[in-house]
């Protein structure tokens, strides 16, 4: 099983080398491991990391763990067996990932984490994460402004087990709860899912036909909620999301969803590769292990500049 996987990965690596002979592996190979590329956010990470690695003269091997810590550990073992120079990782769990990153460290392979933290420091070389708290506050400030500081609203929460769900919600409420005329009439999870958000929104709408706004823990749920609102002829409802996806950008440009918050996923992945390169060449990245990157508000004013989780200058 493990052998087959290893062979498959090697074959993949070989195929890439053959397909792109101009990027000879002068500097060795960097492994890029993320959740499934079905979510364009994670795809943007992989694409960003891969592009930067090639520019810096590395070969890459791109793998997905599907948010399964066991699979992630297998991928780490594969990468270790292959003797990659460094691992770029969007991890499969703050607790469960510690062992995998430690195994790589023990084998002399440094890991550079993006997007999400692990619950220990001193094992990975870098942990570059989006400042979800700051981003949520930005989104909430825009939401309150759009609502005219008053009215009934609903909140869609992400998957409860995911720390980002909690921190975004608390960032939202740190701002919204300062406005006594903002009244939350429903707060439900839709588990980051577009289809679930559609159903949840339908139910909320039936119970609260006078709802004025919806603030959502991510963009896929915002898209689901918007679809339900459109189906019910309630395009007057103000929807704000989080992530900065192209789908929500298009909705903003079409006058649908009003705002979202960009996590600079593409840049974050590139930065992780740059830090890996610096570490491999100089033995140090020159910066702290854990780095919080600020998020950016996206609304009708700057939606044009947003493409694949990056904002053009």
């Amino acid at each position: 099983m493990k052998l087959t996987r290893r062979l498959m990965i090697s074959a993949l690596g070989l195929a890439m080398t053959v397909a792109m002979p101009s990027f000879a592996a002068a500097e060795g190979t960097i492994a890029i491991i993320t959740p499934s590329h079905d979510n364009p956010f994670f795809k943007a990470e992989a694409v960003g990391a891969e592009a930067r690695a090639k520019e810096l003269g590395y070969d890459t091997v791109v793998m997905v763990h599907d948010d399964d810590p066991n699979k992630q550990l297998e991928l780490f073992n594969t990468a270790i067996g292959q003797g990659v120079k460094a691992i770029i990782l969007d991890n499969a769990g703050a607790d469960a990932t510690v062992a995998a990153v430690q195994a790589a460290k023990d084998a002399g392979i440094p890991s550079f984490l993006i997007d999400r933290e692990i619950k220990e420091s001193g094992i990975a070389v870098s942990q570059i994460v989006s400042n979800n708290y700051q981003g949520a506050q930005l989104g909430a400030e825009e939401f309150v402004k759009l609502m005219g500081e008053a009215g009934k609203y609903a909140e869609l929460l992400g998957r409860e087990a995911d720390t980002n769900a909690g921190i975004r919600s608390s960032g939202y409420h740190d701002i919204i709860d300062q406005y006594p005329d903002m009244e939350m009439v429903a707060q439900q999870t839709a588990n980051w899912s577009q289809t679930e958000a559609y159903t949840v929104m339908e139910t909320i709408l039936q119970a609260n036909p006078d709802i004025k706004g919806v603030i959502s823990g991510n963009d896929t749920m915002a898209m689901g909620a918007w679809a339900a609102l459109e189906a019910a002829g309630r395009t007057d409802v103000i929807v704000v999301g989080f992530d900065g996806s192209n789908d929500v950008r298009d909705s903003i440009k079409a006058g649908g969803i009003k705002a979202t918050v960009l996590q600079p996923a593409y840049r974050q992945a590139q930065l992780a590769v740059e830090q890996a390169d610096a570490y491999l060449k100089n033995g140090s990245t020159g910066v702290d292990e854990k780095q919080l990157m600020d998020c950016i508000l996206i609304n009708a004013e700057n939606a044009d500049k947003l493409e694949t989780f990056a904002l053009a200058e």
Partner: peptide
């Protein structure tokens, strides 16, 4: 009572994110 932002924390160079478990704790 509501004070916005993280200026007090971020203007203190002896408070470093790496020393904290995660961004929830840090927030």
């Amino acid at each position: 009572p509501v004070i916005k932002g993280t200026a007090l924390r971020d203007a203190a160079d002896f408070i470093v994110f790496t020393d904290y478990r995660d961004q929830i704790e840090f927030a």
